[in-house]
Write a protein that binds this DNA or RNA. Structure first.
Lengths: 352, 352
DNA sequence: CAGCCCTATGTAATCGATTACATGAAACTT
DNA sequence: AAGTTTCATGTAATCGATTACATAGGGCTG
């Protein structure tokens, strides 16, 4: 019999390495399994002597509780699902890091789901969530599972705590962590206007996106505050990607009456757009000013350095994770958390 | 009693929503739980009639197997851990996407661990892995858990399948998925040399990094192939980040005898470096040529567009995930998979 | 038609923890 | 001193699946 005394296990032919079980620890510490469990979960409810023996036995055996068994009994997974529209998007990476940090400190792991615009994947992760593989979820995709298809089929009824990050989910009674997109867009627009720009183009996000709607409202707010008229011809459709910026640039280059400034609702689009302008022989900001949104790492080192709206991405991730942890641990969380943005003035916008 | 007949459950005051269990399905389909389980796992071992009744009952109840229970019994989690040195690094995002895609198709979920240079985190995830929370792991960090500290303490003995991605792990007997860093670096160096550059600076990665060592050897290979002497003074330390590129640029600007070309071992450094050169009034490529490595999204839209080495990032992720899945499903996997890189010539390098 | 094998199914053990409940001893109350 | 409370601990039920083993019936072989 080995040191741990796996006496009631198959012995000779079973060469798989068996994990240490709570029973092995209990035997070594000469207590019951209940005491071992309590020594870990509620140390104050165990006598100091027993606790010491248990801890020693744990150290000696290298015992790690089996998470599946623990989850099965306690219904807690200590896992959180993060739902993203697109993992490859630069904007999310720092947010993810903020989330991961905070979850880790609280003892939670992070499972990532990249929806990738696929309804199958969405259904899969809805089932995943419903099956109790995670204790809670952070949604960065702007809608609830199965939200669009109602009536037909069984819309996934998720009963675990949820938090919406960045893209608010209208109508959902869950904490929303975001920035004030409307105010930020208005501020940028006014910044451009106060630099003397009268004809300001706007490169949008996907129009069904709540961020886009807010930023678009903010753009109009800003125009109005500056006493400028809104011109629908100056709205160029985009989707936040570099490629959309490139296309918007082509659109712009082809125009006869060009705006003097372009407000792109993502830095990625701004950088793609500038690329196209350069290729066409236009200079930024001399011939045309360009502003972005997000303040990703590359904004500061773009040529010219990009004037943009700074989003506290890491803090957003941390705030969302904290809010969720509060919920998971039975505490409450404010329904709406808004973090401050900042107008970052660099070199891509000039005064007329 | 409700439709599912939870007769042996607490009824009135328990308002928690109970998940449908296999027993509920069994009762509805008028079979045993074993048959339900078999109908899902090995349909060919169940009669068509019973199978149909089971599937109908599952559809009616919306049954989803409880993963914790399944894992506890079968010792399979259908989860894979991805270990990264830094989640915020742009380079990883597309790789992650490739991994996620492939895992998803095979029915596996992805848990992400951002080590962030923290030994505590590393220890945590080693325990995590040892506890059987995942079936396998993909390592992007270039070393095994607990590899550095041996002898002292109990080095985590991981018994699950592992795969190394990008950073090969010397001495580890696990599949390694990578590119030929040495050949790629040599190729770029020769490209610069063949454009007439004789004084080529090299901005390195962290020197303890295996990628760096390979690329550095490749750089020297390339010099030698071109008949150029290696000059240690032209090696500038870096760590693959934008900031390192900025610093390298400052170093370069301050020099009296400047090289005519700079080979940066990451695009991020190349972009940061160009930024600094511009700020100092130097032009790329007229005054100095700059080459990168990786071909991240921003390389193509940088100003000037960056000449670089293209890494098939998504494919790397997919290959690593496939290799791991093979291992998890009892098949074998080649010990070394090398994907092809490509020299991408854009505008940041000029001929002298 | 006896004997054998194969198929479909059920019964119940099992995975490894948590935790409700029981128990006995010690401490406190009146 | 009897009764009550508290504390430390143990016993065993439980979480919800998978799966080893048992069994019954049907088809096949000789």
């Amino acid at each position: 019999m080995d040191e741990l005394g796996h006496k009631d296990r198959a012995e000779p032919e079973d060469t798989r390495i068996r994990a240490v079980r709570i029973q092995d620890v209990a035997r070594l510490a000469d207590v019951s399994t209940a005491t071992v469990s309590r020594a870990l979960a509620t140390p104050e409810r165990v006598s100091p002597e027993a606790r010491a023996r248990v801890l020693e036995a744990i150290a000696k055996t290298g015992y790690v509780p089996n998470p599946a068994a623990r989850t099965l009994r306690s219904q807690k997974t200590y896992m959180v699902l993060v739902v993203l529209p697109d993992l490859a998007n630069t904007f999310f990476s720092k947010i993810l890091r903020g989330i991961e940090e905070t979850l880790f400190e609280a003892g939670y792991g992070m499972i990532i789901s990249d929806l990738d615009g696929s309804p199958e994947k969405e259904a899969h992760f809805a089932a995943f969530t419903a099956a109790g593989r995670v204790d809670g979820a952070i949604l960065l995709n702007g809608h609830l599972f199965g939200q669009s298809r109602d009536g037909e089929g069984q819309p996934a009824r998720i009963t675990i705590p949820l938090v919406a990050l960045c893209e608010a989910i209208p109508g959902a009674d869950i904490p929303q962590i975001e920035i004030d997109n409307r105010a930020a867009a208005s501020r940028m627009t006014q910044h451009l206007a106060s630099a003397g720009h009268r004809r300001i183009a706007y490169v949008s996000g996907p129009t069904n996106n709540i961020l886009e709607r807010e930023r678009f409202l903010g753009f109009k707010d800003g125009l109005e505050a500056a006493g400028l008229a809104f011109d629908p011809a100056l709205v160029i459709p985009g989707d936040y990607t570099i490629e959309a910026g490139v296309r918007a640039g082509q659109d712009l280059v082809a125009r006869s009456a060009r705006p003097t400034a372009v407000f792109c609702t993502s830095d990625e689009m701004a950088i793609g757009l500038m690329r196209t302008l350069f290729s066409a022989g236009l200079r930024v900001p001399e011939d045309i000013s360009v502003a972005g949104f997000d303040d990703i790492e590359f904004a500061a080192v773009a040529e010219p350095a990009l004037t943009t709206i700074h989003q506290p991405r890491r803090e957003l991730g941390q705030a969302a994770a904290s809010a969720l942890i509060n919920l998971l641990q039975g505490r409450s969380s404010p329904k709406r958390i808004r973090l401050e943005t900042e107008l970052v003035i660099r070199d891509s916008v000039t005064s007329l």
